[in-house]
């Protein structure tokens, strides 16, 4: 019985690590997505260039390859990251690169008349973005962003491969010690499902709140 509780603790410990990685990497992803997404709406080629390359690089390979590269290859050029730092940076940059497209698309999707109206009201460029364009783009970003946060959670098991003791890592350890493969893996599948569903539920709520006024009619009000 006490052994069972030991295993339960390992699973809980691992869940906590998974949550930590997910939350911190999500923050990184949001920052990456906003910075590169906004920069890619610039009319200046030189401002778009760097972010575009960054995003294409991270979307052109899988997160797993990037994680290994950051953990095993980077030290050869003198950069050694702890497993946690490598995990949150790579997961954040990877998911943020997909988010970049979401941000760019949402900003580009705000009708031109909105910008023109804010010019006519003499808003500065920054005020136009902050008070008119961004709040409207944000509503369009939320549904795809929710899916990306779930994607990010689903990438966290990869960090077990670079020695993070996350949910997957600890479950595999339990599996080895107890031999009950089915129970260990079924438990964490359900665990990930519940966490994904929690994210979906939370984003759904935020979405309903943020779309006040926008839901009852066409965007071009």
């Amino acid at each position: 019985m006490s052994q069972f509780s030991d295993y339960a603790w390992m699973i809980l410990d691992g869940t906590w690590v998974t949550v930590k990685i997910t939350v911190v990497a999500s923050v990184v992803a949001v920052i990456v997505a906003l910075l590169t997404g906004v920069a890619r709406t610039s009319k200046f080629f030189w401002i778009r260039l760097g972010p575009t390359l960054f995003v294409e690089l991270f979307r052109g390979t899988s997160c797993y390859v990037q994680l290994f590269w950051a953990f095993f290859a980077l030290p050869f050029i003198g950069i050694s990251l702890t497993p946690f730092v490598a995990s949150v940076l790579v997961l954040g940059a990877n998911v943020g690169s997909y988010g970049s497209e979401v941000v760019r698309g949402a900003i580009a999707g705000v009708p031109r008349g909105q910008t023109e109206a804010s010019v006519a009201l003499n808003f500065t460029k920054l005020q136009r973005f902050r008070h008119v364009v961004f709040p409207q783009a944000l509503v369009a970003m939320l549904p795809p962003a929710g899916n990306l946060f779930i994607d990010l959670l689903k990438l966290t098991p990869l960090t077990s491969l670079i020695t993070m003791s996350d949910l997957t890592y600890n479950a595999m350890a339990v599996r080895q010690q107890t031999g009950s493969t089915f129970i260990a893996l079924a438990t964490i599948l359900v665990g990930y499902f519940l966490m994904s569903s929690a994210i979906a539920w939370a984003i759904g709520r935020i979405e309903r709140r943020a779309s006040r006024g926008l839901e009852t009619g066409p965007r071009a009000a």
Binding site: P157, L189, Y192, S196
Partner: peptide
Amino acid sequence: EFIRRTPLLVQLYFIYFVLPQ
């Protein structure tokens, strides 16, 4: 929905380790 909301790596483990049992 369950497949979409769980990680590919864990699904891979499941097929690789549980099926032989």
